[in-house]
């Protein structure tokens, strides 16, 4: 049976799919995560939110909710069928290293993910530090993609690498998050890096 239509017009995962691969797209608000996911996704990007109570609990203790001290973690995601047997999910989330109460959400995001594409904006490179630290903290290999905005200043690659404090092997690529092919090329740079990373860890 081919893919069928959902009640709301969406499309089911094909019956033949055996493997669901997961990549993360991380970066600060407004850097273009959902735009990039939407550019490659075959479904309209979906959003879910987790409301974390004070102690990092999910919904088990409503007493913590009364004082409104909750943190909401939103993730947007999309899906791309790559072959009859393989579907790729892209999860977009902001890095939130400082908020330890969101750690359960991040553990869930990182579980089984091959790696992360960190999006950065040359007008505010430091806004991506949280994302990079979060991803590093979960031991995931990553590549950095500079999303081009109309007024983005251009810097020599060496300066950018230094400003982002990138390891020599970490890929740094340009992309236009609105453009499907450009977004796919950024993801390819990530996956090639992930492949090298895991090849080096096979001994």
């Amino acid at each position: 049976m081919a893919s069928t239509t959902l009640p709301d017009g969406g499309v089911y995962v094909r019956d033949t799919v055996q493997t669901a691969a997961k990549l993360l797209v991380v970066g600060p608000f407004g850097v273009g995560k959902t735009t990039l996911i939407g550019a490659v996704s075959e479904i309209e990007p979906l959003r879910t939110e987790e409301v974390m109570t004070q102690a990092g609990a999910l919904v088990d203790d409503l007493r913590g909710v009364e004082d409104k001290r909750t943190t909401t973690v939103a993730m947007d995601f999309g899906r791309l069928t790559l072959s009859p047997e393989l579907v790729l999910y892209l999860f977009g989330a902001p890095g939130q290293q400082r908020f330890t109460r969101v750690a359960p959400v991040w553990r869930q995001l990182a579980l089984g993910a091959y790696g992360a594409l960190v999006l950065a904006d040359t007008r505010r490179l430091d806004a991506s530090f949280d994302a990079m630290e979060t991803v590093e903290g979960h031991g995931l290999p990553y590549a950095v993609a500079l999303n081009s905005f109309p007024d983005s200043p251009h810097f020599p690659e060496e300066e950018l690498r230094e400003a982002l404090d990138l390891r020599p092997e970490t890929p740094l690529v340009d992309c236009d998050a609105r453009d499907r092919a450009s977004a796919a090329r950024a993801l390819i740079a990530l996956v090639k890096h992930v492949r090298t990373h895991y090849q080096e860890h096979v001994s």
Binding site: T19, S83, A184
Partner: peptide
């Protein structure tokens, strides 16, 4: 069955992901 957690032995899945992405790049 949930997908296997990423580990070096999943390199064949990575190759398939690359092939698929190359088709739209």
């Amino acid at each position: 069955k949930p997908p296997p957690v990423a580990r070096p032995t999943d390199l064949d899945v990575l190759e398939k992901v690359l092939d698929g992405l190359n088709n739209i790049a």
